[in-house]
Design a protein around this nucleic acid. Structure first.
Lengths: 186, 186
DNA sequence: CTTAAATGAGACATACTTGTATCATAATGA
DNA sequence: TCATTATGATACAAGTATGTCTCATTTAAG
């Protein structure tokens, strides 16, 4: 298992990409199905990830890291409150597959400390934006922060669903999401 | 298996109520866990529902029928468009457990014709309301109907989640949902 | 009270999934 | 070219869930 070997890398990325897509559709997919979808043998799948649980944990962490990394530029823009949330939406909707994976598997990864900390960090950031938005007057103070956060997640999920079923493309989904979310905060 | 027998009815309702609550928390719950939660023997569970699949199909159909029945009074009020949707929300949020069960198991019941027809009927009703709302000017015509329907479902799901985690009670959730949904349509 | 029937407990076969191990093959890298 | 090594196919043991069946017990109904 030489990480630099081209065969190794090819198998690994095939497994990762296929797994995320497949498990999103069918969270109960078996290791044999995952291997088949990735186009690798089941034995190879086990060579890369010791158990099914380890695979899911690795995928969760990957998605978490990728979304966190994608949001760094937003943070560096120095935005806050509603503006920061809208900027976040524009970044995340196109990569909603990654984000949605997290929503479906947080309970599974909930045993892992690293995953919990990273997840909590992202949640805290969101809560911070909401509270800043309230102070700035962009978000109605009478709306519970929990509700704003929950509806943000829910609408993101809805947007991804429409993209997935080809009812909207990523740009349309982003725009309608931003518009709906903005309006919903008054 | 005499449906009029008190023992039969007691077991059956215990199974149904426990199953819905348990499967909502853990969709992969085993027949042994379901029986345990219902306080009946595993054998009795199988006497009432031939297979796990049949159980889930029966529960899906039950939830579907109950939500449909609960919405009949709304239809009979002669409301349409946004008013009908808001009235529907007020009826459905308190029974969101039933509704959410459907969202998690539609793919499983998707093989069944009766389930599909009933589900489609409810969806059509919702689409009808949205289109009437657009004509009446309560819902922006530039919002895709698919998006309005999807966000309605998504926000309902979010509301239920907050009720479940005790962050809001049913009344608060209903009000914030109605408010958010109304605002989001402009 | 007496009969009929639903239940609970548990044994049982079947099937399926997981994770491990082996071996021949094919692709990589030096 | 040649040695290395990741892979695919396959067999395998262990564990677990499903669905069936039996029998003693309990409970409802007449």
């Amino acid at each position: 298992m030489n990480k630099a070997d081209a065969r190794y890398q090819k198998s690994r990325s095939a497994i990762i990409e296929s797994s995320i897509a497949l498990l999103l559709t069918n969270p109960d997919a078996r290791m044999s199905e995952i291997a088949l979808a990735a186009g690798v043998g089941r034995a190879t799948l086990y060579r890369h990830f010791e158990t099914r649980g380890e695979l899911i944990k690795a995928l969760t962490l990957l998605c978490l890291d990728e979304t966190e990394a994608a949001l760094i530029p937003v943070q560096e823009q120095g935005l806050d409150g509603l503006d920061a949330m809208v900027a976040s939406i524009r970044v995340i909707v196109p990569m909603a597959e990654r984000f949605r994976f997290l929503m479906n598997f947080t309970s599974i990864g909930a045993a892992d400390d690293t995953i919990n900390r990273t997840y909590q960090r992202q949640l805290d950031g969101l809560v911070g934006y909401v509270e800043a938005g309230k102070k700035a007057g962009d978000i109605a103070k009478s709306l519970p922060t929990d509700w704003v956060v929950a509806s943000y997640d829910a609408l993101l999920n809805a947007a991804w669903g429409l993209i997935q079923t080809k009812k909207l493309d990523a740009d349309q989904a982003t725009e309608v999401f931003v518009r709906t979310f903005r309006a919903s905060l008054k």
